[in-house]
Each structure stands twice: as C-alpha cells, then as structure tokens.
C-alpha cells in the first residue's frame, strides 16, 4: 500500500473550496485520447489515455469450442491485467479481486450492449470463434473502468475478422471486419465526502468512499457497478444516470472520430 496522506489533505482542502486539481469541474472529464491499431499483430487494438491513465486493449480472435449452453454462438472472454509497470502499488501474481472486477464490469457493458454479434461467430458444430479482449493497464491515474470500456469497445469495432480455411486460421490478406452491433461507453463517478466527481484521478480514488460505473448506449443503461464501502442515495444515483447520458455523447464522439463514422 502506498501512503498518499499529503495528497489526501490537499484534495480534501481543494474540494472544501469547491475545486478539483487542474481546475476541473465536478462533472468534467480529463483530456481523452484514443489511438486505434497500436498493435497491428492483434486483430484489433486501441489505447485510451484519460489524463495520465493509459489503457491498452488488444483483441485476438481464435477458433475454439463453444460454451456448453451456447452451442451456436462464439465466445467473448475479457481479462484485465494491472501491470506492475502501471503503479508502484501493483504487484505481480494472479489477478487481484480489483482486476477481476474491472474486467468483468467492462465485459458486462460490452455484452449487454451487444457490441460483438456473437451469433456471427459460429463456424460449424463444436467450432466457433472466440474473441479475447485483453485489457492492459500501462499507467494508473484513476478511472480505469471508463478507459477500459472505451478502449475495449474501440478495439472490437475496429477489429479485423480472420478466416477459417482448410482447418486453418487465416489472419492476413484480404479480411473483413469483426461483425459488431451495439456500442456502449461508461461513466464512472466517485463519492468524496458529500461530493460526486466524474472521472476520478488516482488522488481522488485514494480518498473516495464509493464508486459507481454506469455503462449506456444512446437510449438505455446497459450495466452498472457500485464499488467500495461507501453508499449512495437513490437521488444521487438518478443524478449520475442523467450525467451519464449527457457525458457519454462526448465519449461516443471521441470514438466515432477515430473510427471514421
């Protein structure tokens, strides 16, 4: 555990005055950049930077067995690694509960919004395509969830689709796109004292009592996840839902600009 006590006092002092670091408003995102195809060897990839947070997502598509309960659908498997290079407090070893929760929340948003058309991934009996979404956290400065969701969705939307020919996977040459349907982004809020802050940075996450991530598309909430031991009132949650519908327009714009739609 890293001791951030001096920051804690400083952030509380700032918030007491009604301001955030870098004069950010409570409902403002930090600068967001999205870069597609960082890893050309992967079928799809995207790096998202939100402030100093850097998250890289690589998508690989392999042939595998279908899940027993979905024999006619492809599979989607999402994992996350909090790399030891990303923060002094990250350690090597098996995935922590935090990493597992992170991967599962991103996965849930992608799945609920039907980003990947899983029915298009059927090849033949007992043979389907499996889409692996691996989230690599390269640098941690808070709000991994939104960076991960944006990078994962972007990587999937830009992924190329291998071919299965003569019992072999063909990954190069004239390939089409992975078939996708929906599009979801997420907005994450932190409760610090009585304040609700969009897009918390590491200093703010260090002292937040509760966190809420809301994934949505243009019409609906698609996934939610509350974290940590603090609580929210229903009013606070309703306000965050409103903010999510408003702020997600910006996230979709960031994505569409790079995807050329």
């Amino acid at each position: 555990m890293v001791i951030r006590a001096p920051n804690e006092e400083y952030i509380h002092e700032l918030l007491g005055k009604g301001v955030r670091e870098h004069e950010r408003g409570n409902m403002d995102y930090r600068n967001i950049t999205l870069e597609l195809n960082k890893i050309p060897h992967a079928e799809g990839s995207a790096q998202v930077d939100i402030g100093n947070t850097k998250v890289l997502v690589g998508v690989k598509i392999d042939v595998g067995m279908p899940l027993p309960d979905k024999p006619e659908e492809g599979a989607l498997i999402t994992g996350a690694e909090l790399l030891p290079i990303a923060a002094a407090e990250y350690e090597t070893g098996p995935p922590s509960p935090e990493a597992i929760e992170f991967a599962r929340v991103v996965d849930r948003g992608i799945r609920a919004a039907e980003v990947v058309d899983l029915s298009s991934l059927f090849i033949e009996k007992d043979r389907v395509w499996t889409v692996f979404v691996d989230i690599y956290v390269l640098n941690y400065d808070g709000n991994l969830f939104d960076a991960g969701a944006l990078a994962a969705t972007s990587a999937l939307l830009s992924a190329r689709m291998p071919k299965y020919e003569d019992a072999k996977v063909v990954r190069e040459g004239n390939l089409g796109k992975l078939k996708t349907k929906g599009l979801a982004t997420s907005c994450t809020f932190a409760k610090v004292g009585s304040k609700i802050l969009l897009d918390p940075n590491a200093n703010e996450e260090e002292i937040m009592s509760a966190r809420l991530t809301i994934a949505n598309d243009t019409n609906s909430i698609r996934a939610m996840q509350k974290g940590l031991s603090g609580s929210f009132t229903v009013d606070e949650i309703e306000n965050m839902i409103d903010a999510t519908f408003e702020k997600s327009k910006y996230l979709r714009d960031v994505m569409k600009k790079q995807l050329g739609e």
């Binding site: 609906s220 909430i221 509350k226 009132t233 949650i237 519908f245």
Partner: peptide, 22 residues
C-alpha cells in the same frame, strides 16, 4: 436511511425503469 450499498446491473434499463425498480 435507504443507503445503497451494492448496485449492479446488466441488460437494458431506462432511467424511469431504474427509479421504479428501486
């Protein structure tokens, strides 16, 4: 005080449905 301590969701829900569900 009706404090929400755990909240998870997946699927499709409007804000109105969320409020009604709560």
């Amino acid at each position: 005080k009706d404090e929400v301590l755990l909240l998870q969701m997946d699927g499709t829900l409007t804000k109105e449905e969320f409020s009604k569900g709560m």
